[in-house]
Write a protein that binds this DNA or RNA. Structure first.
Lengths: 211, 211
DNA sequence: GTCTATAAGAGGATAGAC
DNA sequence: GTCTATCCTCTTATAGAC
């Protein structure tokens, strides 16, 4: 019997199992990558047998792609919300806050994404060249308008976007490095994100020049 | 017979083979990670048989660790050169240029490093908590002095360092994404690095506020 | 739906000839 | 030093009972 019933609905048990598997898969894939993760590990983390897990997702590929796709939607949402009607300080500020919150709350999603890009993004090519490219072009135009209206300094929108992505995602992707440099006492991470936001705001909006 | 002769020297052939293997290993490991790379692939890329390669590096681990260590030295050098006696604009500027040059010339080293950190840096822990931590503390102190001397705006040195690392390494680690967004026509990458440097300088030193 | 058992193959490492 | 052949483990996936 197939994983979904004929009308496409799932029972509550099925839904729960699916979610347990996807959560376990994100845990493992985000840390060890696709090849570095075994189905045994995911099944154990999900608390079920491997063949049972393969009843829900027929192959490792299928499981990985599902996790990746769900992660990606999360990733795109805050960027899409950037509003050209607003002013740059509040819009970019809100976007940075949202990205940092995402790095704090769901670092695994960020790392899964980073892992995939690092490996050449074989499964992401279509999304990157399609929806993401369109979104980047739209938002670049908004930034150019802000600049033309004298609302912000003239910078290349694309590189500004890269800079924001890089310096926010870094707090998820390089968390291990930060933990090693700062220690990992309880509360350290929350403080880190406060400091990150403060510093990013200061540098991005005012720069390092003495005032 | 061992890989090195009794006096510890290597023949020219041995030296060349070693280097061919290390280059091939960096190529593969940086793209596919440790688990994602097979000895077959490395041996093929190095143009020799697998057993022959294993004559030079007895295990996959040993080969990986050697590549990683050599990469790391490269990574640390420019940071160590940051001179507290200079002024922030030229010192940080030179550091950013050096990091961008590294991302352009040796993106694989950056990706190997990123891969390792993403996976929890099992082999890098000692370096991160030792030499790197010391270096970061030294350079943080220098930045604090610049701030106290009124030479730059008051920001948290640690987060400033993270920001510089993030937004420079991004050009190596997320190159795939940038290629997808911008296309990969010849010359694109060189132009990209020029734009990156210009934007980073502008934003970091002057900020986005309209002037 | 879930399990045990196992097939099928990939991949790290070694043996031993040359 | 380098090769061919091979061992053995790990891993994905399936068969088939319950």
């Amino acid at each position: 019997m197939a994983v979904t019933s004929e009308n496409g609905r799932r029972t509550r048990i099925q839904q729960e199992n699916r979610e347990r598997i996807l959560k376990a898969a994100l845990d493992m894939f985000s840390r060890s990558g696709y090849r570095g993760t075994t189905l045994d590990q995911i099944a154990a983390a999900a608390g079920m047998s491997k063949p049972n897990m393969l009843y829900y997702f027929r192959t490792k590929q299928e499981l990985y792609q599902t996790v990746l796709q769900e992660t990606l939607d999360d990733w795109l949402t805050p960027f899409a919300k950037l509003d050209p009607q607003g002013d740059p300080a509040s819009e970019l500020g809100a976007y940075i806050s949202a990205k940092l919150a995402h790095a704090r709350i769901n670092p695994k999603a960020s790392r899964l994404f980073a892992n995939e890009i690092l490996q050449g993004a074989p499964l992401l090519e279509d999304t990157l060249k399609g929806p993401l490219k369109d979104l980047v072009e739209t938002k670049s135009k908004a930034i150019r308008t802000w600049i033309a209206d004298g609302k912000m300094a003239p910078v290349d929108p694309l590189h500004l976007i890269y800079m924001i992505w890089a310096s926010t995602q870094h707090y998820a992707d390089f968390e291990t490095q930060m933990d090693a440099l700062e220690g990992t006492e309880p509360g350290t991470r929350d403080k880190r994100f406060e400091g990150a936001e403060r510093t990013l705001f200061t540098v991005l909006f005012n720069g390092l020049k003495p005032r």
